[in-house]
Design a protein around this nucleic acid. Sequence first.
DNA 1: CAATTCCTGATAGGCGTCTATCATCAACAT
DNA 2: ATGTTGATGATAGACGCCTATCAGGAATTG
Lengths: 341, 341
Amino acid sequence: MVRATIEDVALEAGVSVATVDRVLNGRAAVRPQTVERVEKAIRQLNYQPDRLAARLARSREYRFCFVLPEGTNAYMSALADEVRAAASRMVQEKVVIDLRLTDVFDAETLASALERLGSNYDGVAVVALDHPRVREAINALADSGIAVVTIVSDVPNSKRHHYVGIDNSSAGRSAATLMGRYLSGRSGKVGLIAGSLSLRDHIERQFGFEQVMLHEYPNLTLLPVRESRDDPKRVQAVAAQLLTDHDDLIGLYNVGAGTPGIVAALEAAGRARKVVYIAHELTDESRHALISGTIDIVINQDAGHEVRSAIRVLMSKADKAPIVNSMERIRIDIYLRDNIP
Amino acid sequence: MVRATIEDVALEAGVSVATVDRVLNGRAAVRPQTVERVEKAIRQLNYQPDRLAARLARSREYRFCFVLPEGTNAYMSALADEVRAAASRMVQEKVVIDLRLTDVFDAETLASALERLGSNYDGVAVVALDHPRVREAINALADSGIAVVTIVSDVPNSKRHHYVGIDNSSAGRSAATLMGRYLSGRSGKVGLIAGSLSLRDHIERQFGFEQVMLHEYPNLTLLPVRESRDDPKRVQAVAAQLLTDHDDLIGLYNVGAGTPGIVAALEAAGRARKVVYIAHELTDESRHALISGTIDIVINQDAGHEVRSAIRVLMSKADKAPIVNSMERIRIDIYLRDNIP
DNA sequence: CAATTCCTGATAGGCGTCTATCATCAACAT
DNA sequence: ATGTTGATGATAGACGCCTATCAGGAATTG
């Protein structure tokens, strides 16, 4: 059984190919009853336009922009690398991808960066701060017909078309369960460090973690969250403080970046491998610490997958084609030292 | 910068497009020095054929066949469903995918099934038994120019072009680490059940598990493996036996299928939630047991990803195009009740 | 009723590649 | 010199769709 073409549809509907094309691409006004006839023919023949041929014919460039945090965050660098890699691979599909680094922690800076993108792009992917100003900028982009996806950190009440990233409260709950089970039978304190409480992903992880921790593991005392702004020095200071303040600290969950600082603090205090430490994002540093045993578990979201998923979604939106949800689900990767890739 | 076309290459090399095509597709004899000139032009212009246009022009059908185990194994059913779903999605890319179910546990049956595929296909994906007879059949297919990938379970010394699946010894090691940590501070026996010791994946998981278990957790006594042939009743019987034989059994790792049987045995013995139970593959049953707490951890490989990866690899082989390894790595999914999708 | 406007048909040309055929031309063998 | 072979050029048509234009008929307006 061969696939139906536009010509078949035209024949079936008793109209010309030009008219079918007008219906399909809304190129000009067509009488409602004619539209109806064409659509019926499409349904009967189960016609699906050949996207490859369409792309070839349109010889259209897709222009996308990724807006990522600048700075030294290892995970974000990896994400940027993946964007660049995907960009060079996508050249052959006529996809141009720009990469823009900006201070994501500052709502004003981020928002105006987004606004400056103007209408140069068909789609934008952004690691976003959940802030009214940023939400406005995202909505403005979406309203002007640009496809917008949030990546890694979401802005749920905005008009973004899609969020590419893990379910963060689920990640937090998982961390809590692992922490609780690893520490089963023991009692003591568990520390929680976050980067920024304006980052949606951090809050949600914290929320999930606390939820499970409080309900399921009464033997463990959860200390109040400490905010680190993901600044390496500050993270280390916060961790060191925690360790000196609580010599019965037996667990530590870092929701944000800055893992090396915590590793350093743990090792300096001689508490490495004594405190169960769960971190996020697999980087060179966390990989090493995982192998040495200072980190027990790393929860990760695959940067490559996220970038490719974001691109697929943006392309689908640009083509007005549907996306396959099950394909775009980003999974929570749990890494032990035994399954590091 | 626009992409170079065949015409550009022809111009650059000072030959006709026909000659470039001859070089590219080996269509006819071309003088070595001419070949050299064309290849130089290709290099200089960094010419890459437009795969979309090529597919369109060739209007070639790709014919692939998936050979999966028949029977009631829930994971394999899910895999089959994913194959069917992918098949219907790939119609628009001119990819025809057949699905063949056979008794994979029987080397003879599987091998002759593979042989009967003849040359009707451009590529074959198979869940394979690691057996000389099967290896021969795989080699024969590969020798006759058909792309072969093994999926889920590998046949390492065969001529298969690629293995799509997780690193099973790594999965086994991860299971052991989680088991060891969940049971930290306690001592007792840990049971190990496998489906078939001719299935590569099962052996490797077992191997990885034992390796870590023996070295890292001397407090736990590992019982000898029991083979279940993945038969539901038998699995349940084996598990029940283990439980009655060892009332100090505190951990259980099932390397193969038949999870429902073990869940039933644990619940019948009133030992659910008392024994740390780690299983493979996320199915409806294991999902339920995970939520109820009878299963503590499920190690999974995403069926959808595997199928899509297998198809991508088969298509690349058929097109003689390279594959991007990092894209095709199948990850070990670790599911707790907190991150079930 | 003529002048517009709205719909529709017909068709050409292009996107980048593949396939196939025919024509050249040079080198070589007879 | 004639025929044969090998290498190359030229070119048309296809793949399925998009874009654009022109022509003509139908419906609407003044």
